[in-house]
Each structure stands twice: as C-alpha cells, then as structure tokens.
C-alpha cells in the first residue's frame, strides 16, 4: 500500500522538468530552518489531534473488549441511530443550534457595542478599569460559575429568591425546576462570561483603524452614529467574519460546563438545557457505550465542517478577501 503511494509520488516528482526540481530543492533547503521551527508544533498536532482521529472507527463498531477494538464487529451506522431516532434527538439538536446561534448573534452585537463605547472613553484610567472588570468573568472556570449561579438561583437559599424577589414583592421561583427561564439564564451567563474577551478582540480591531478616516468624516460633518455605521463597522468586518466563521464551525459543540454544571444537572429543566454534548455524556455515564459517544462526536465534527465550508463559500462569493481560506 505505502509503496504504491510513494511510487506515485516519485513519479509525480520525476514528471516535472529537471530545472524546476532543482529550484524547488533549493527552495526547500532554504526553508529548512522554517521546517525545523514548525516541527514541535506539527508533531504535537499529530499526536494530540490527528492520531486520535483514527479512533473515529469506533463510531462504526460494536465494541466488545474481549475481542479488542480492531476486531470488534462493524455495525455500520447503528451507533448513530440513537441520535436521530428519539424525540430527544429533535430537542437536543434544536437546543444546540438555537443556543449557539443566539450566542453568536447576541455576543457579537453586544461585544461590538461595548468595544465601540470603550473606544469612546477618553479617560485612560476609567477605560482601563472598565476593561479589566468586564474581562474578569472570563478568567473564572465554569465550575466556579456554577457555584455562583447556585448562590443566586438556589430555591431556598439563593440571593434572588431570598432577597431580590421579596423586595420586588414577587413570588419565589423554583429556578432549577422551571424550564422556561433557562434560555434566558444560560444566555445571560454565557454573555456575562464571554463578552469581555470578545470585546477585547473587537476593541483591538477598532484601535487599529486609521484615525484619518474619522478626521475626514468629522470635517464632512458626519455625526458619531454615522461614523460608527460607515467607518467603524466596515473596518472591523474582516474580524467579525473570522470570529463568526470560527463560531459557526463549532455550532454543534456546546460549552459543556455551561450546560451541565451550571443547571446542576437538574432533570426538570432538560427540555431547555439538554444539548448534544450533555445528552451524549449522560448516555455515556448511563451505558458506558463509547461507540455511541464516538458517533456523536463524528456527527458534530462533520456538520461543523460542512457549515464552515458553506459559510466560507458564501463569504468568498461576496468578498474574497474576507474569506477564511
């Protein structure tokens, strides 16, 4: 098998004109230090990312450990069935897409708004302060965020039920058993935690805009609002597109900590908190079936990959420069 390929490759090389080969070799030789530089990183990717990809065959097997992974029976797409055959399949797919889609839109809009405002603040001290504080939640792990969430939302002891709602004259709410509140809670927590970093990225892009554009616009009598619409947003479009494309690629993955730890794995709210990742994890815990989780992982990757290719293609058609590749 390998010999054939190598021969093909050699044939490939030999078919080229000799001179071209020489210059190519020269080029390769000159680039040798660069290749050496890349080596540690590429080896790491090979080990950490590419080697495990062979494990994807598990998705198509009925694993029996007495036989070993390679010798286990092939069962085609049977492991994928549970992802599609139940009512849950619809719920988890819907939740995953709606949440992540919502996160992409809301976080992007808010982060850009905050970034623009931060840019408007001329007082250096205040600017530094806002920026540091808004970024703080980003530094905290989801495990701790779930502790925090519980401190606010716990039925008996939480700050909301115990202090804020009575203050407003409202009844207590069983947060962890009422599914209808969770889309808001999770979106809020996601924004609270993620906005800081995203905002820094956009702020960075805004700072990079040439000041002359604004000066010219001011001379023309454009107000702040117009400047934002016509200069700021178009200038940071490439960054917006890149961040969004990357997010779209991961639209089928969800932040496991957010959807598992923060709702305290409470059964009553599965309708609005269950996403593909948590569903698969619970299945794995319940049944210990690695075939099923491998199938889910493959499904997430493939869909993400296709989505990125498609959206990249769409972007590319409008503007080649903005496309990711």
């Amino acid at each position: 098998m390998s010999e054939v390929t190598v021969k093909n490759l050699q044939a490939d090389v030999q078919s080229l004109p000799v001179r071209k080969v020489n210059t190519r070799l020269m080029k390769l030789k000159r680039a040798l230090p660069l290749f050496i530089m890349m080596l540690p990183g590429l080896i790491y990717l090979l080990i950490n990312n590419y080697l495990p990809m062979f494990g994807l065959i598990i998705a198509f097997k009925d694993i029996n450990f007495a036989k070993g992974i390679l010798a286990s029976d092939w069962i085609g797409f049977k492991n994928f069935e549970y992802l599609f055959s139940t009512r849950d399949a619809f719920v988890i797919t819907r939740n995953t897409i709606l949440y992540n889609g919502g996160f992409i839109i809301l976080n992007t809009v808010l982060a850009i708004a905050v970034a623009i405002m931060l840019n408007e603040i001329k007082n250096k001290l205040a600017k530094g302060f806002y920026q540091s504080v808004i970024l703080m939640p980003f530094l905290i792990s989801m495990v701790i965020v779930s502790y925090l969430g519980y401190a606010f939302l716990s039925e008996d002891t939480g700050y909301l039920n115990h202090t804020i709602l009575p203050l407003l004259g409202l009844d207590e709410v069983s947060w962890y058993s009422e599914a209808k509140y969770w889309p808001y809670i999770l979106t809020f927590i996601n924004m609270w935690k993620g906005i800081g970093f995203l905002c820094v990225i956009y702020l960075a892009a805004i700072i990079g805009i040439d000041q002359e554009f604004y000066e010219a616009a001011t001379l023309d009598g454009a107000n702040k609002w117009k400047q934002i619409i016509h200069i700021t947003i178009p200038s940071i479009m490439p960054v917006i597109i890149m961040m969004t494309l990357l997010a779209i690629g991961r639209i089928f993955y969800s932040d496991f900590g957010l959807f598992y730890q923060v709702p305290m794995n409470s059964g009553a709210i599965y309708d609005t908190t269950n996403v593909i990742d948590t569903y698969v994890y619970r299945g794995l815990m319940q049944l210990g079936d690695i075939g099923m989780s491998a199938a889910a992982g493959l499904y997430q990757s493939v869909v993400g990959f296709i989505l990125v290719l498609v959206s990249n293609y769409l972007v590319r058609r409008k503007s080649k420069d903005n496309a990711l590749f």
Partner: peptide, 11 residues
Amino acid sequence: KTEVTAVTNVV
C-alpha cells in the same frame, strides 16, 4: 440502549 437513554432523560 437507545430507549434507555431517552427514557432515563424523561424519568
């Protein structure tokens, strides 16, 4: 196993 995963969720 498919049913067990789904039913456990409901339970």
